[in-house]
Design a protein around this nucleic acid. Structure first.
Length: 571
RNA sequence: GCGCCCGUAGCUCAGAUGGAUAGAGCGCCGGGCUUCGAACCCGUAGGUCGCAGGUUCGAAUCCUGCCGGGCGCGCCA
């Protein structure tokens, strides 16, 4: 299979090249004796925040200082005097501050990057860091007892975007939804539905104490009883029937909502199936054989406390019933046995107490705890008219994901759900999310894309044929704003790589906001000074600038695609 | 009480592996369209990075203690 070498684009490639030059240089300095030969130190090459500090900066002289017993600035001078093989790469190097070396690269290096973006197009940003390894991402995993709420939506947006990013990083990704259908909740769902049905003819019929109060229960009761005469069953059979039917119908709804939200799952994994296939018993037997279980007070316990948990946990109650934890362990062992090299769980933050014990259980089974990453998603609060929209899941009064999506659209919801670190609570302001201006971050980014498309329409209407290349004309890009845009776009591939490693999907929304901002500023200088427009009477310059904004359009479009957000040509 | 997370501008939040003068959006005030989309841009103001120590050439970032907030600590699911 022939394809372009991926994963070495942009800043990443440049850093590697610079690193090679620096490594060679200090080795030669060691050999020539101008630096005392020591183990090569760990140093960084970074993109400075301050543009005056060059394109790249390294702290190499400072980390060498203690072993060399010399002033970092002296060492910097020595290194700079011995720089080799850099004629086509480094434009200028200078000592700065306490002992940094700042590098300015040749402009051609940056311009060739512009061509790389235009050539790679949809593929720009793809890398091979995943190396084809398979990774399981489990997310949403809602109980099939009610509609998805906003917290589920946030987890869904995070999970789906991570999956898209991980695929882009060369992982083989499996998306999985774990259906918690084994415990009392589904039974309770059945009781709730049955009770609502009975109440149609007998308003005084009791409703289960911890039953589900949402209006959807009544809908389910009506649907189910319309298809099947429940009075032909005894009470127990009717409740079981309602539970099964309710589970199926809720799952269908959940899936429909998720598809509408822009995602689907590869695997829908039922908790009940773990019991049916005997996996729970198998896991317990296995752990018992390994001596990780013991009996006390008529119950079975697992020794998680030996593996980082606060205390041991009951896995089978003294009435013979398994605890939720038992199926959870066997579920995760099954994930492991299915051969995934890595697993990611996205849980609501209220489950954070379980992270340690699940990891402990894995360790008890000889599995490295780093194999599993658990991301906790904090609460979503809704605000409208300056007031918090109070929700109560227990009373069945809450805004569902479906309602929010229908009101403000998939794009806005997905985007704002990723505007913050998953670990901090999120306030969603309905008034803001519905606005069609720069206050609404998703429109700000989409507008940049649409605006660029508009520029191309304009160019076309003036008879300009875009050459789709910057090779011959890019040296006409002399404005500071233009260099800044190119350099910023160069960071996109390493950003994607980082997100694939750290799972910090929100960094993508921030990046796109900043890129859109740089573009809007650039566009506006043409409003003041006509020579700074993209489409001008100067043909080569116009071609160069079209290549630049084409690249911006590509990066925005690729970023939005990873977020599951549309990149409109008009809006 | 124990464990995890958090504390950065008036508000909401970014600040990857420790780096140079800590950033953005909103809000306030003031500006910019007869010409590429004003769904945009520009400018002013706003900070003991919760507090106190420590590590280091260098700390918002790492360590310790304290203060303040959130969540979790069932033979519940």
């Amino acid at each position: 299979m022939l394809h372009r070498a991926k994963g070495n684009q942009g800043i990443y490639r440049m850093k590697k090249e610079l690193e090679q030059i620096l490594n060679q240089t200090i080795q030669h300095c060691f050999q020539e004796g101008v630096l005392k030969a020591v183990d090569p130190p760990e140093y960084i090459i970074e993109v400075p925040n301050n543009p005056e500090h060059g394109h790249f900066a390294t702290n190499l002289p400072m980390v060498l200082a203690s072993s060399q017993k010399r002033n970092p600035r002296d060492i910097a001078q020595t290194i700079m005097d011995h720089l080799e093989n850099h004629d086509t790469f480094i434009e200028r190097a200078e000592i700065a501050g306490p002992g940094f070396i700042n590098f300015m690269l040749k402009k051609e290096k940056w311009f060739s990057l512009l061509d790389a973006i235009i050539t790679d197009r949809d593929e720009y940003g793809r890398n091979t860091s995943g190396d084809g390894k398979n990774i399981l991402v489990e997310f949403v995993s809602a109980n099939p007892t009610g509609p998805l709420h906003l917290g589920h939506g946030r987890g869904a947006a995070l999970g789906d975007t991570l999956c898209r990013v991980l695929s882009f990083c060369g992982y083989d990704v499996v998306r999985e939804f774990y259906i918690n259908d084994a415990g009392q909740q589904v039974r309770l769902l059945g009781e709730s539905i049955y009770s609502r049905w009975r109440q149609m003819s007998d308003p005084d019929y009791p409703f289960p104490e911890k039953g589900y109060h949402g209006a959807y229960i009544l809908d389910l009761a009506e649907e189910i009883s319309a298809e099947k005469d429940l009075s032909t069953f005894g009470v127990e059979d009717a409740v079981i029937f309602c539970a099964e039917q309710g589970r199926e119908r809720m799952l269908r709804e959940i899936r429909k909502d998720l598809v509408q939200f822009g995602m689907d799952f590869d695997v829908w994994y039922s908790e009940t199936s773990l019991f049916e296939k005997g996996l729970v018993e198998e896991a317990l037997r296995d752990m018992k054989d390994k001596g990780k279980l013991y009996e006390k007070d008529g119950a079975s316990w697992i020794q998680t406390s030996s593996f980082g948990d606060d205390k041991d946990r009951v896995i089978r109650k003294n009435d013979g019933q398994y605890t939720y934890f038992a199926s959870d362990i066997s579920y995760h062992l099954d994930k492991w046995k299915r051969g995934f090299s890595q697993a990611v769980n996205i849980w609501g933050a209220d489950h954070h107490g379980y992270v340690q014990r699940v990891k402990a259980a894995l360790k008890a089974n000889g599995i490295d705890e780093d194999w599993l990453s658990v991301l906790l998603v904090q609460l979503v609060k809704l605000w409208e008219g300056g007031q918090e929209v109070k929700m109560s899941k227990r009373a069945g009064q809450y805004v569902t994901l479906k309602e929010l999506v229908e009101e403000v659209g998939v794009d806005a919801v997905r985007f704002v759900f990723l505007t913050k670190n998953h670990d901090s609570p999120l306030d969603v302001d309905m008034d803001l999310i519905k606005r069609h201006d720069s206050d609404n971050p998703v429109y700000y980014v989409q507008y940049a894309h649409a605006r660029i498309c508009s520029i191309f329409r304009k160019a076309e209407s003036e008879g300009i044929i875009y050459s789709r290349s910057a090779t011959k004309t890019a040296d006409r890009l002399v404005l500071e704003e233009e260099m800044r845009l190119i350099r910023f776009m160069a960071e996109f591939p390493s950003l994607i790589r980082d997100i694939g490693k750290t799972f910090e999907a929100h960094r993508l929304t921030y990046y796109l906001g900043e890129l859109a901002g740089l573009f809007h500023k650039y566009f506006n200088i043409g409003n003041q000074i006509p020579e700074n427009r993209i489409v001008t009477g100067d043909e080569p310059l116009t071609q160069a600038r079209l290549a630049l904004v084409d690249a911006i359009r590509i990066v925005i479009s690729n970023g939005l695609r990873l977020l599951g957000v549309h990149a409109p040509e008009r809006m």
